[in-house]
Design a protein around this nucleic acid. Sequence first.
DNA 1: AATGCGATCAACCGCGTCCAA
DNA 2: CTTGGACGCGGTTGATCGCAT
Length: 202
Amino acid sequence: MGRSPCCEKEHTNKGAWTKEEDQRLIAYIRVNGEGCWRSLPKAAGLLRCGKSCRLRWMNYLRPDLKRGNFTDDEDELIIRLHSLLGNKWSLIAGQLPGRTDNEIKNYWNTHIKRKLLSRGMDPHTHRPLTPVDGAAASRPSSSDDGSSGATSTGEPRCPDLNLDLSVGPPAADTPTSHPVCLCRHLGLRGGAACSCRQADSP
DNA sequence: AATGCGATCAACCGCGTCCAA
DNA sequence: CTTGGACGCGGTTGATCGCAT
């Protein structure tokens, strides 16, 4: 409430993107680059919301995207990162060059959740499912913000998991990837260790 | 061959955060 | 310091596909 809509909904298309819309968006970004998503649709001659354009570009049109099945290595990395970071899909995607947060989120919900369940692991807590002591494994969702990497008692989610967090650039062979500066998300932005600014500068 | 149902993926929505004025 | 606009993120929905009956 009180929040202005992100765009004029009466004059915007919704739903699946057409080839022509894709081409227009790609052509525009090739010339002008990303950014200023709010004004982009008009400038590109698209009857789309800026957010919609951004999503389409980020998730499907970017040239550095890696399409196709996830490898076992990627599976395991996602599981490890999720145990650390929770549902921070953009952070997880930052460690998987060529993968998007939306893609990983979908993949988690459709594949990995089931994979963990079949292993007897709780996909939320990454701890073994214990049917007897149900309160421990399937605890109420009130504290399930999934973002801390630790339980409300302060203990690590996965104490038995060797998470040495060697999650820096996992694939150094992808110069076009956009490494996410963890400083920003960890509240350390601008600190001495933060490389956002340097990385941004040409 | 037709239908039902579950799985998958693309897209939308609302909210939180950042940053310039 | 405050405020409002823009961006980015995570959750959720809806359409489509493929398999089983």
